[in-house]
């Protein structure tokens, strides 16, 4: 009883520290977003006169920098969905070919892709700008989507390949005996069994695109083609940023990915393959 109580207390302590660490910035975000603009730096734990005016300003595009907010939100959604789809398309096919079809040097290719992460993304900004210019993609949302896909796909391939390895090969062989082609095995066996990993990787890619700043401002020019983080950037370098409005904007922008995470959370757990094969 004593030992269990101590163990429980230890877990509780760690949980409190982690919760505080995680929630304090979000709490600050919330508090400042509810603070009147003229009290931005009041430094209160809770505003004296909490207000929703900052949210109204954002939702009604009531500030000059927010003129295209909803348009930019649509661009963010589009970029996130397309990046997610592209990354999944590439990663699923690559992991299947490398992991299940056992192509020569597949493992080397998979590991080489990870080398992308040895070079900081910022160092590749200029080459990317040049490449997008050559393909006439500058100032197109597709330039940003392709850039983010490039940085996200190697990790996605690696994760799906590792996850795919846990799927029993006997299932492929059983399907082959039943006459399934490799493509049918991919659709009917492989993809259904790696769905949890796909959801996790899809969310990762989606969030990567959702939060992308460097390549977004670098490759996009027109305000109506920009994503929300660039509009947030206007405030960061302004002389008198209304921080409560910026915080409200940040909070609103963080809601879709948060909702997405909680809606797919149950799929994140692995183990869907258990019982798939008789041992």
């Amino acid at each position: 009883m004593g030992h269990k109580a101590i163990q429980y207390a230890q877990f509780a302590l760690i949980a409190i520290v982690v919760m505080t660490w995680t929630l304090t910035p979000i709490y600050h975000l919330l508090v400042v977003s509810l603070t009147p603009v003229q009290d931005s730096f009041a430094g209160k734990l809770w505003p004296d006169r909490p207000t929703l005016d900052n949210y109204v300003t954002v939702l009604t595009q009531g500030d000059y920098y927010l003129t295209n907010f909803w348009r930019q939100m649509a661009n963010s959604i589009f970029a996130a969905i397309m990046t997610c789809a592209l990354v999944l398309f590439i990663a699923v096919l690559a992991s299947y070919v490398i992991g299940r079809m056992r192509v020569r040097f597949g493992g080397v290719v998979s590991n080489l892709a990870l080398l992308t992460y040895l070079i900081p993304a910022a160092f590749l900004a200029i080459p990317f700008y040049q490449v997008m210019g050559v393909y006439q993609l500058l100032d197109s949302i597709w330039a940003m989507i392709l850039a983010v896909t490039t940085f996200t796909a190697p990790y996605a391939i690696w994760v799906l390949r590792q996850y795919g390895d846990s799927v029993p090969r006997e299932l492929d062989e059983a399907a082959k005996i039943d006459g399934a082609t490799p493509l049918q095995i991919l659709y009917m066996v492989y993809i259904p069994l790696i769905t949890p990993a796909m959801i996790a990787i899809g969310s990762f890619a989606l969030l990567h695109a959702w939060n992308e700043y460097l390549y977004a401002f670098l490759l996009l020019n027109d305000e109506t083609r920009m994503t929300v983080p660039i509009a947030l950037g206007y405030y960061a370098s302004d002389d008198d940023s209304p921080w409560p409005v910026v915080m409200a904007m940040g909070l609103i922008y963080s809601l879709p990915p948060a909702l997405l995470y909680y809606s797919v959370r149950k799929y994140m757990a692995s183990g869907l393959t258990s019982g798939g094969v008789k041992s």
Binding site: Y64, A74, F78, I81, Q136, N221, R225
Partner: peptide, 28 residues
């Protein structure tokens, strides 16, 4: 979802080539 994405995507058509391109600091 795909349809919505395509519709949204159509909002983001790249600009045609211009005779003059200006990059300016956004005013307050």
């Amino acid at each position: 979802l795909a349809l919505a994405a395509i519709v949204l995507g159509s909002l983001s058509v790249p600009a045609l080539s211009q005779d003059l391109t200006i990059w300016w600091v956004k005013g307050t």
